[in-house]
Protein backbone atom coordinates (compact mmCIF):
# COMPACT_ATOMS: atom_id res chain seq x y z
CA UNK A 1 0.00 0.00 0.00
CA UNK A 2 2.76 2.42 0.97
CA UNK A 3 4.85 1.64 -2.09
CA UNK A 4 1.76 1.84 -4.27
CA UNK A 5 1.08 5.38 -3.03
CA UNK A 6 4.71 6.37 -3.56
CA UNK A 7 4.50 5.19 -7.15
CA UNK A 8 1.24 7.10 -7.69
CA UNK A 9 2.88 10.15 -6.17
CA UNK A 10 5.89 9.85 -8.45
CA UNK A 11 3.60 9.84 -11.45
CA UNK A 12 1.80 13.04 -10.44
CA UNK A 13 5.02 14.57 -9.11
CA UNK A 14 6.78 14.04 -12.43
CA UNK A 15 4.14 16.18 -14.14
CA UNK A 16 4.60 18.87 -11.49
CA UNK A 17 8.34 18.63 -12.11
CA UNK A 18 7.87 19.03 -15.85
CA UNK A 19 5.82 22.21 -15.44
CA UNK A 20 8.02 23.49 -12.62
CA UNK A 21 11.22 23.11 -14.65
CA UNK A 22 9.97 25.49 -17.34
CA UNK A 23 8.63 27.83 -14.73
CA UNK A 24 11.97 27.82 -12.99
CA UNK A 25 13.90 28.45 -16.22
CA UNK A 26 11.90 31.61 -16.87
CA UNK A 27 12.22 32.69 -13.26
CA UNK A 28 15.99 32.19 -13.28
CA UNK A 29 16.32 34.33 -16.38
CA UNK A 30 13.83 37.13 -15.75
CA UNK A 31 13.20 36.97 -12.01
CA UNK A 32 9.41 36.91 -12.14
CA UNK A 33 6.70 34.32 -11.57
CA UNK A 34 5.12 33.54 -14.90
CA UNK A 35 1.54 32.90 -13.80
CA UNK A 36 0.52 32.14 -17.36
CA UNK A 37 2.83 29.13 -17.58
CA UNK A 38 0.11 26.67 -16.51
CA UNK A 39 -2.24 28.15 -19.08
CA UNK A 40 0.34 27.45 -21.77
CA UNK A 41 0.02 23.80 -20.71
CA UNK A 42 -3.76 24.14 -21.01
CA UNK A 43 -3.45 25.61 -24.49
CA UNK A 44 -1.23 22.66 -25.43
CA UNK A 45 -3.85 20.21 -24.17
CA UNK A 46 -6.53 21.96 -26.25
CA UNK A 47 -4.40 22.06 -29.39
CA UNK A 48 -4.07 18.27 -29.19
CA UNK A 49 -7.82 17.95 -28.55
CA UNK A 50 -8.78 20.13 -31.50
CA UNK A 51 -6.28 18.42 -33.79
CA UNK A 52 -7.69 15.06 -32.74
CA UNK A 53 -11.42 15.83 -32.87
CA UNK A 54 -11.70 18.46 -35.60
CA UNK A 55 -8.52 17.76 -37.54
CA UNK A 56 -8.89 13.96 -37.38
CA UNK A 57 -5.14 13.51 -37.29
CA UNK A 58 -3.56 10.50 -35.56
CA UNK A 59 -2.99 11.11 -31.86
CA UNK A 60 0.80 11.13 -32.05
CA UNK A 61 0.63 13.94 -34.58
CA UNK A 62 -1.85 15.80 -32.39
CA UNK A 63 0.69 15.57 -29.56
CA UNK A 64 3.48 16.90 -31.76
CA UNK A 65 1.26 19.81 -32.83
CA UNK A 66 0.34 20.48 -29.19
CA UNK A 67 3.97 20.62 -28.10
CA UNK A 68 5.02 22.82 -31.00
CA UNK A 69 1.95 25.02 -30.57
CA UNK A 70 2.47 25.50 -26.85
CA UNK A 71 6.12 26.41 -27.50
CA UNK A 72 5.07 29.03 -30.04
CA UNK A 73 2.32 30.46 -27.80
CA UNK A 74 4.84 30.71 -24.98
CA UNK A 75 7.35 32.51 -27.20
CA UNK A 76 4.65 34.81 -28.55
CA UNK A 77 3.50 35.58 -25.03
CA UNK A 78 6.93 37.01 -24.32
CA UNK A 79 6.89 39.12 -27.47
CA UNK A 80 3.35 40.38 -26.88
CA UNK A 81 3.08 40.70 -23.12
CA UNK A 82 6.52 40.89 -21.57
CA UNK A 83 9.14 42.28 -23.92
CA UNK A 84 8.12 45.91 -23.72
CA UNK A 85 7.94 45.76 -19.95
CA UNK A 86 11.36 44.11 -19.79
CA UNK A 87 12.96 46.69 -22.03
CA UNK A 88 11.77 49.80 -20.24
CA UNK A 89 13.29 48.78 -16.91
CA UNK A 90 9.97 48.46 -15.08
CA UNK A 91 9.77 46.66 -11.74
CA UNK A 92 9.48 42.85 -11.93
CA UNK A 93 6.02 43.17 -10.39
CA UNK A 94 4.75 44.55 -13.70
CA UNK A 95 5.79 41.37 -15.46
CA UNK A 96 3.92 39.28 -12.91
CA UNK A 97 0.78 41.36 -13.36
CA UNK A 98 1.07 41.07 -17.14
CA UNK A 99 1.36 37.30 -16.68
CA UNK A 100 -1.83 37.24 -14.61
CA UNK A 101 -3.59 39.17 -17.35
CA UNK A 102 -2.30 36.79 -19.98
CA UNK A 103 -3.49 33.84 -17.88
CA UNK A 104 -7.05 35.20 -17.74
CA UNK A 105 -6.95 36.06 -21.43
CA UNK A 106 -5.90 32.57 -22.48
CA UNK A 107 -8.52 30.90 -20.26
CA UNK A 108 -11.30 33.07 -21.62
CA UNK A 109 -10.11 32.68 -25.17
CA UNK A 110 -10.50 28.91 -24.84
CA UNK A 111 -13.84 29.23 -23.03
CA UNK A 112 -15.24 31.38 -25.82
CA UNK A 113 -13.85 29.42 -28.74
CA UNK A 114 -13.99 25.82 -27.51
CA UNK A 115 -16.37 26.04 -24.58
CA UNK A 116 -16.17 25.52 -20.84
CA UNK A 117 -17.10 21.81 -20.81
CA UNK A 118 -14.80 19.08 -19.52
CA UNK A 119 -13.36 17.10 -22.42
CA UNK A 120 -11.22 13.98 -22.83
CA UNK A 121 -9.06 12.49 -25.54
CA UNK A 122 -11.03 9.23 -25.35
CA UNK A 123 -9.28 5.87 -25.19
CA UNK A 124 -6.00 6.64 -26.87
CA UNK A 125 -3.85 4.96 -24.23
CA UNK A 126 -5.10 1.56 -23.04
CA UNK A 127 -6.39 1.66 -19.45
CA UNK A 128 -4.38 -1.33 -18.37
CA UNK A 129 -1.97 -1.88 -15.59
CA UNK A 130 1.04 -4.06 -15.05
CA UNK A 131 1.46 -5.83 -11.72
CA UNK A 132 4.95 -5.83 -10.38
CA UNK A 133 5.56 -7.41 -6.96
CA UNK A 134 2.31 -6.28 -5.38
CA UNK A 135 2.30 -2.84 -7.02
CA UNK A 136 0.08 -2.10 -9.95
CA UNK A 137 1.50 0.29 -12.48
CA UNK A 138 -0.83 1.96 -14.94
CA UNK A 139 0.40 1.97 -18.53
CA UNK A 140 -0.28 5.71 -18.72
CA UNK A 141 1.61 6.38 -15.48
CA UNK A 142 4.58 4.39 -16.70
CA UNK A 143 4.53 6.20 -20.02
CA UNK A 144 4.21 9.57 -18.27
CA UNK A 145 7.15 8.93 -15.98
CA UNK A 146 9.26 7.53 -18.80
CA UNK A 147 8.66 10.50 -21.09
CA UNK A 148 9.27 13.00 -18.31
CA UNK A 149 12.49 11.36 -17.13
CA UNK A 150 13.81 11.46 -20.70
CA UNK A 151 12.71 15.09 -21.12
CA UNK A 152 14.29 16.23 -17.87
CA UNK A 153 17.56 14.39 -18.50
CA UNK A 154 17.67 15.99 -21.94
CA UNK A 155 17.03 19.38 -20.34
CA UNK A 156 19.83 18.78 -17.86
CA UNK A 157 22.27 17.96 -20.64
CA UNK A 158 21.12 20.93 -22.69
CA UNK A 159 21.63 23.38 -19.84
CA UNK A 160 24.77 21.80 -18.41
CA UNK A 161 26.71 20.68 -21.45
CA UNK A 162 25.90 22.79 -24.49
CA UNK A 163 26.77 26.28 -25.65
CA UNK A 164 23.06 27.11 -25.57
CA UNK A 165 22.99 26.10 -21.91
CA UNK A 166 26.08 28.18 -21.18
CA UNK A 167 24.36 31.19 -22.70
CA UNK A 168 21.23 30.59 -20.62
CA UNK A 169 23.26 30.24 -17.43
CA UNK A 170 25.31 33.33 -18.21
CA UNK A 171 22.18 35.38 -18.93
CA UNK A 172 20.44 34.16 -15.79
CA UNK A 173 23.51 35.01 -13.74
CA UNK A 174 23.75 38.58 -15.04
CA UNK A 175 21.94 39.68 -18.14
CA UNK A 176 23.90 42.89 -18.73
CA UNK A 177 27.27 41.18 -18.36
CA UNK A 178 26.17 38.32 -20.60
CA UNK A 179 25.19 40.82 -23.28
CA UNK A 180 28.53 42.67 -23.26
CA UNK A 181 30.29 39.31 -23.52
CA UNK A 182 28.42 38.56 -26.72
CA UNK A 183 25.28 36.68 -25.69
CA UNK A 184 22.25 37.84 -27.68
CA UNK A 185 20.06 37.99 -24.58
CA UNK A 186 16.80 38.80 -26.36
CA UNK A 187 17.22 35.75 -28.55
CA UNK A 188 18.02 33.61 -25.52
CA UNK A 189 14.97 34.84 -23.63
CA UNK A 190 12.80 33.93 -26.61
CA UNK A 191 14.40 30.49 -26.85
CA UNK A 192 13.88 29.87 -23.13
CA UNK A 193 10.18 30.76 -23.47
CA UNK A 194 9.99 28.36 -26.40
CA UNK A 195 11.64 25.59 -24.39
CA UNK A 196 9.46 26.20 -21.34
CA UNK A 197 6.38 26.21 -23.58
CA UNK A 198 7.39 22.90 -25.18
CA UNK A 199 7.64 21.34 -21.72
CA UNK A 200 4.33 22.88 -20.67
CA UNK A 201 2.65 21.54 -23.80
CA UNK A 202 3.94 18.07 -23.02
CA UNK A 203 2.64 18.36 -19.46
CA UNK A 204 -0.74 19.63 -20.68
CA UNK A 205 -1.28 16.60 -22.90
CA UNK A 206 -0.17 14.19 -20.16
CA UNK A 207 -2.56 15.85 -17.70
CA UNK A 208 -5.36 15.70 -20.24
CA UNK A 209 -4.73 11.98 -20.73
CA UNK A 210 -4.79 11.28 -17.01
CA UNK A 211 -7.63 13.59 -15.97
CA UNK A 212 -9.73 15.96 -18.07
CA UNK A 213 -9.22 18.91 -20.35
CA UNK A 214 -10.89 22.12 -19.20
CA UNK A 215 -10.12 25.85 -19.45
CA UNK A 216 -8.81 26.29 -15.91
CA UNK A 217 -6.71 23.11 -15.81
CA UNK A 218 -3.67 25.39 -15.87
CA UNK A 219 -4.23 26.17 -12.21
CA UNK A 220 -2.08 23.12 -11.56
CA UNK A 221 0.78 25.55 -12.11
CA UNK A 222 0.15 26.71 -8.56
CA UNK A 223 1.49 23.35 -7.43
CA UNK A 224 4.41 23.78 -9.79
CA UNK A 225 5.05 27.18 -8.27
CA UNK A 226 5.08 25.64 -4.79
CA UNK A 227 7.41 22.97 -6.14
CA UNK A 228 9.76 25.72 -7.33
CA UNK A 229 9.75 27.49 -3.98
CA UNK A 230 10.27 24.23 -2.09
CA UNK A 231 13.14 23.25 -4.37
CA UNK A 232 14.61 26.74 -4.61
CA UNK A 233 13.29 29.40 -7.01
CA UNK A 234 15.38 29.60 -10.13
CA UNK A 235 17.03 26.22 -9.70
CA UNK A 236 15.89 23.66 -12.27
CA UNK A 237 17.09 20.60 -10.28
CA UNK A 238 15.35 22.17 -7.28
CA UNK A 239 12.11 22.49 -9.23
CA UNK A 240 12.29 18.81 -10.17
CA UNK A 241 13.03 17.75 -6.61
CA UNK A 242 10.22 19.98 -5.32
CA UNK A 243 7.74 18.61 -7.86
CA UNK A 244 8.47 15.00 -7.00
CA UNK A 245 8.42 15.75 -3.25
CA UNK A 246 5.01 17.40 -3.45
CA UNK A 247 3.59 14.66 -5.68
CA UNK A 248 4.69 11.90 -3.32
CA UNK A 249 3.54 13.82 -0.26
CA UNK A 250 0.11 14.41 -1.75
CA UNK A 251 -0.29 10.75 -2.61
CA UNK A 252 0.74 9.65 0.87
CA UNK A 253 -1.52 12.19 2.61
CA UNK A 254 -4.38 11.25 0.28
CA UNK A 255 -3.86 7.54 0.85
CA UNK A 256 -3.26 7.43 4.59
CA UNK A 257 -4.83 10.56 6.10
CA UNK A 258 -7.50 12.15 3.96
CA UNK A 259 -7.60 13.26 0.36
CA UNK A 260 -9.37 16.41 1.53
CA UNK A 261 -6.27 17.45 3.45
CA UNK A 262 -3.88 16.99 0.50
CA UNK A 263 -3.66 20.64 -0.43
CA UNK A 264 -3.50 21.71 3.22
CA UNK A 265 -0.35 19.65 3.61
CA UNK A 266 1.12 21.08 0.43
CA UNK A 267 0.61 24.64 1.62
CA UNK A 268 1.88 23.73 5.09
CA UNK A 269 5.07 22.46 3.43
CA UNK A 270 5.36 25.73 1.52
CA UNK A 271 5.02 27.76 4.71
CA UNK A 272 7.46 25.51 6.57
CA UNK A 273 10.07 25.87 3.83
CA UNK A 274 9.64 29.64 3.75
CA UNK A 275 10.14 29.79 7.51
CA UNK A 276 13.03 27.36 7.86
CA UNK A 277 14.85 27.53 4.56
CA UNK A 278 13.62 30.43 2.44
CA UNK A 279 16.12 29.75 -0.35
CA UNK A 280 14.59 26.28 -0.84
CA UNK A 281 16.10 22.82 -0.75
CA UNK A 282 18.55 23.42 -3.61
CA UNK A 283 18.29 27.20 -3.74
CA UNK A 284 21.04 29.06 -5.49
CA UNK A 285 22.95 30.95 -2.90
CA UNK A 286 26.17 31.68 -4.66
CA UNK A 287 27.82 34.66 -3.10
CA UNK A 288 30.50 36.72 -4.69
CA UNK A 289 33.45 36.52 -2.36
CA UNK A 290 35.38 39.45 -3.75
Amino acid sequence: MFLQQVVNGLSVGSVYALIASGYSLIYSLLGFSNWAHGDIAMVGAYIALIAQTSGHVPFWLAVVLAIAGAGCVSMLSDMVAYRRIRNNHSPKMFLMIAAMGLSITLQNLIMVTVGPRFRTYGDVIPVRSIRLGGISLGVLDLLTMGIIVVALVALGLLIGRTKFGLGVRAASSNMVTASVLGVDVNLYIRLVFLLAGVFAGMAGVLLGLKYNIYPTMGSIALKAFIACVVGGLGSVPGAILGGVTIGVMEALVGGFISSGLRDAFTFALLIAILLVRPSGLLGKNIVDKA
Binding site: K163, L166, G167, R169, A170, S173, N174, V176, T177, A178, L181, G182, V183, K284, I286, V287, D288, A290
Partner: peptide, 17 residues
Protein backbone atom coordinates in the same frame (compact mmCIF):
# COMPACT_ATOMS: atom_id res chain seq x y z
CA UNK B 1 31.29 41.39 -13.22
CA UNK B 2 32.45 37.81 -12.96
CA UNK B 3 29.53 35.40 -13.32
CA UNK B 4 29.74 33.96 -9.80
CA UNK B 5 27.88 30.67 -10.34
CA UNK B 6 29.91 29.72 -13.41
CA UNK B 7 33.35 28.15 -13.22
CA UNK B 8 36.48 30.00 -14.32
CA UNK B 9 36.53 27.95 -17.52
CA UNK B 10 32.85 28.65 -18.19
CA UNK B 11 33.39 32.37 -17.63
CA UNK B 12 36.15 32.25 -20.25
CA UNK B 13 33.92 30.31 -22.64
CA UNK B 14 31.20 32.94 -22.33
CA UNK B 15 33.90 35.44 -23.29
CA UNK B 16 34.35 33.49 -26.54
CA UNK B 17 30.61 33.25 -27.11
Amino acid sequence: QILPGLTVLENLRVGAF
